[in-house]
Design a binder for these strands. Structure first.
Length: 352
DNA sequence: AAGGCGGGGAG
DNA sequence: CTCCCAGCCTT
């Protein structure tokens, strides 16, 4: 079976920037970027990142601000935070060389069971399984496994089934499994007629491909109204750097507060109070308007933009505050939820 | 074991 | 719309 798989991979693999060599540094960067993120999205980010930080030493000497800027828009920003910590540890605790041992890899920040297996197999050609969403889908369909893939107690089962398939080319095997999951064994409409394994696939024989993989429950999304304070001073707007934990941690943004629908206070008062409590700052209120909504995995944001103006450009270290010309705002790492408000904001500011 | 954490593409 | 994605970390 693995022979068929590898042969298919040899003939059909995509040419991707992180497949040009087996540099563990590049494999690592690509694997972190690819967590919960699709290949097409990652390619440009990867190329930009590697040309700026070609080695782990370069990255260990980089600034957090610059790395976040490179990560802007990619999401799951704790990955960027851990990236620097990890580079630093590799340089200072591993003499700049990636450990070849899976357990040692897992000790590094941001590297879990999947990524450890991926680096060990892809970069070092060690027979370590790397079980991600693609592999889970392929394995569960191949074997008609109904054990929910998102229950911890079944991790070993899927890992074991992956090891059973593994060939003498671990690096190519790991990539082939994921390539198959991404190109052929897709979630909604698998291309079984082009699949090298269909003849030996349990769910194909039964025509039950779409019954797999089995997953339990789903997270309920909550709705929130969020008030954003747009404080204008001349040509500049106030930005704050958000706290180090929680939603959008470490990114720049506008002061924000979750609005209470049941409160007797109008929205602008709630935003005003937030500014006063957080920054001891009372700029002059102008007006509020509805902003663009934004959907996260677990939250739906209805944004309310509240405009203020001031002659006093306050400064603060906790949280960090900066005043930025709207045309220079691209220099800061802003989450997409806020970037999509910028058009509205610049129009409003012109009218003030 | 559960929940938090982004954003984009597919259907 | 809903689901999914080369997951990890904290609690």
């Amino acid at each position: 079976m693995s022979k068929e798989l590898l042969s298919w991979y040899d003939n059909n693999k995509r040419s991707l920037p992180w497949r040009r060599d087996k540099d563990p540094y590049k494999i690592w960067i690509s694997e972190i970027m690819l967590q919960q993120t699709q290949v097409t999205t990652v390619i440009d980010y990867f190329n930009r990142f590697i040309s700026r930080y070609p080695t782990v030493e370069a990255l260990a000497n980089g600034t957090e601000e610059d790395v976040f800027k490179l990560w802007e828009g990619l999401g799951y920003y704790s990955r960027a935070k851990n990236l620097i910590r990890c580079a630093y540890q590799i340089v200072n605790e591993h003499k700049g060389v990636f450990p070849k041992d899976v357990e040692a890899l897992k000790q590094l920040p941001g590297i879990g069971p999947y990524t450890a297996g991926a680096i060990a197999s892809i970069a070092f050609d060690l027979p370590e399984p790397a079980v991600d969403g693609n592999v889970l889908r392929v394995i569960s369909r191949l074997n008609c496994l109904s054990e929910p893939i998102n229950e911890n107690k079944h991790q070993m089962l899927y890992k074991q089934k992956t090891i059973e398939l593994m060939s003498e080319r671990p690096s190519d095997f790991t990539q082939a499994m994921m390539e198959l999951g991404a190109m052929i064994c897709t979630p909604k409409s698998p291309r079984c007629s082009n699949c090298p394994l269909s003849e030996r696939c349990c769910s194909f024989k039964q025509q039950t491909q779409l019954n797999y993989p089995v997953k339990i429950k789903k997270i309920k999304q909550r709705e929130e109204r969020v008030g954003l304070a747009i404080v204008v001073s001349g040509q500049d707007v106030m930005l704050i750097k958000h706290e180090t934990t929680g939603l959008l941690a470490n990114l720049w943004g506008f002061p924000r507060t979750t609005l209470d629908d049941l409160s007797k206070l109008p929205f602008e008062k709630q935003v005003q109070n937030h500014l006063e409590q957080e920054l001891d700052f009372k700029p002059e209120f102008s007006h509020c308007m509805v902003g663009k909504p934004h959907v996260f995995t677990h939250i739906k944001w209805q944004t309310i933009l509240c405009f203020f103006h001031t002659d006093v450009k306050i400064s603060s270290e906790i949280p960090k505050v900066e005043w930025v010309n709207l045309s220079d705002i691209d220099l800061k790492a802003l989450p997409t939820a806020l970037k999509k408000q910028l058009n509205i904001i610049s129009k409003e500011i012109e009218e003030i």
